[in-house]
Nucleic acid binder design. Sequence first.
DNA 1: TACTTATTAATAATAACTACTATTAACTTT
DNA 2: AAAGTTAATAGTAGTTATTATTAATAAGTA
Lengths: 130, 130
Amino acid sequence: MKKDKLGAIRLTEQRKVILEELKQLKTHPTADELYFIVKKILPKISIATVYRNLEALSAAGYIIKIKSAGNQKRFDGNMQEHTHIRCIKCNKVRDIEDKIELPEKYKNLKTDFNIIGFNIDLYGICPNCL
Amino acid sequence: MKKDKLGAIRLTEQRKVILEELKQLKTHPTADELYFIVKKILPKISIATVYRNLEALSAAGYIIKIKSAGNQKRFDGNMQEHTHIRCIKCNKVRDIEDKIELPEKYKNLKTDFNIIGFNIDLYGICPNCL
DNA sequence: TACTTATTAATAATAACTACTATTAACTTT
DNA sequence: AAAGTTAATAGTAGTTATTATTAATAAGTA
């Protein structure tokens, strides 16, 4: 089986379309939002395929699963390091171009956890909800 | 109706117990975890009451609803400003005593959102999952 | 006291996933 | 290339965490 360089998944037609559409969007859609978009290209696709493959693609490192508040997972096809801002009213997520870095002094925090990394998200109100 | 100073909610017996138990815990429990704890004191309490009142208490400013990853909401009775670290394996949340501040230079980020604040969470592996 | 409103326990309903199943497609071995 | 093996899919059932509904009760007010 031909494996891709990034992760050990085969890029099926469904996966290719999901990936392409996600990469074109700047809106960080939820799985169901993306389902309706992908459906226009592959009308027979199942919503379970979209959920499953968003997980697979993010596990394989093609896309990013956006953590942070909100009860729906969102996905991001932009692999450049960047920060997100979320609207506290409608939960939409947008990119912040500036890359935020944590000062050196926070590298050695007191905890019995094994620190792997951190996550900074901004929150505010989007133009639409103002 | 006697309103409390903080928010406009009446502190019923159920709410008092939920609040007290949460304040004693350092574990940032989920609603159902807290339900089983509170049940020992009020055996007849309904899980819906716990969910409803965790929302009510956080809306009224008595407790904090922890945002960030993981599919279950978690709650924190510690109103001091502090940072959280989450275990990527078991999703448990612990406090970091140091207060993390965002450098000045990030106060004017380029975005059409109205920035209200930010949220920093660390992630890592807890002693138990190591 | 009688009335009004808030809160509760219990349970039904919902939203967002996630697992299952039969089928098909892709790859591998003969 | 045929047969065998594994992976992926569509469709759908099931699950989990949460939210809404409802009838009963408790608290506050006139």
